[in-house]
């Protein structure tokens, strides 16, 4: 049995109750209402409604197969590339329906970046990995400007010191943790408003995980972050708000502190105390 002691969770969650942050983010970035997702005839998400606040980290937790990734992929329409996947309901980004026919999906993905569960650097050099996004969007007018973007992105991802002398080597030659930070650098190089992270630390050791958590906390100043995680300590450590999914239903959302100390729903309580999942 690998139950997390509710007391421990509470203790780690406590210092994160940052009142200032909560106040700044009274206008949500994403508003989702009545979201249903079907894979063929199988319904993966049922009537999900959640607000995702600006400049906060929102953690999505829940047992495996409950639809966390599915929901995350709805937010930048990555589900579009799955033929059998169908999404209904409303997801508004700054009041605009992202599933609206008028909306350009490429533009949406430039505004909503994503970091995947498994590090997936491009089979190109480290520099090219980061420069690719800004280049296709025309964010840099000169080589010098592009160099600048690459450097700041790598610095913010905490990778610059390790790779500054080998920018021309393949990104795939880095260690798993470095690759994941490279993917984060790649995502922030496009200067999105929101970054979606699907279990970004699942393949990493505790030290690399700690680095990425630190990074997420820093990135919160400038970005809105949604993170899917299986580690409740991680959710408690990095997030301000938490949503708990169970069997395709968003059971409960609330401030992280409240979810971990005083969950309203029995299922949430059972999950965070390790009784199932």
């Amino acid at each position: 049995m690998s139950a997390i002691d509710a007391e421990t969770v509470r203790a780690t969650a406590m210092p994160k109750s940052d009142a200032a942050t909560v106040n700044r983010s009274n206008v949500p970035a994403f508003v989702a209402e009545g979201v249903n997702v079907y894979y063929g005839s199988k319904q993966a998400l049922k009537d999900v409604a959640i607000d995702i606040n600006r400049n906060q980290v929102t953690a999505l937790i829940g047992p495996s197969g409950c639809g966390k990734s599915t929901f995350l992929r709805c937010l930048n329409r990555m589900n579009d590339i799955i033929d059998i996947c169908r999404v209904t309901g409303n997801i508004l980004l700054d009041g605009q329906d992202i599933y609206d026919k008028q909306l350009d999906v490429v533009q949406l993905r430039a505004r909503v970046g994503m970091v995947f569960q498994k590090p997936n650097p491009f089979p190109k050099s480290i520099y090219e990995n980061v420069a690719y996004g800004p280049r296709i969007h025309g964010l840099a007018r000169s080589k010098a400007e592009l160099d600048e973007v690459v450097q700041t992105s790598l610095e913010r991802a905490g990778l610059w010191k390790e790779v500054s002398d080998r920018l021309n080597q393949p990104g795939t030659g880095l260690s798993g943790g470095q690759q994941q930070r490279l993917c984060i650098a790649r995502a922030i190089a496009v200067q999105p408003e929101v970054i979606l992270m699907d279990e970004p630390c699942s393949a990493l050791d505790p030290i690399a995980t700690a680095k990425i958590e630190e990074l997420i906390d820093e990135l919160r100043q400038n970005f809105t972050i949604v993170i899917v995680t299986h580690s409740m300590q991680q959710a408690a450590r990095v997030s301000q708000r938490t949503g708990f999914f169970h069997l395709g239903v968003l059971v409960e959302t609330g401030d992280t502190e409240q979810i971990f100390t005083n969950p309203h729903d029995k299922r949430t309580q059972d999950y965070i105390t390790g009784r199932f999942g």
């Binding site: 990555m78 993905r109 970046g113 089979p123 996004g133």
Partner: peptide
């Protein structure tokens, strides 16, 4: 995962195909 990575940074379908899929 390579396609998703490309689409994820906002590459269009054609860009993801010609910059990544075809070379690979």
């Amino acid at each position: 995962s390579i396609r998703e990575a490309a689409l994820g940074v906002g590459a269009s379908k054609v860009q993801s195909v010609f910059h990544f899929v075809t070379p690979l």
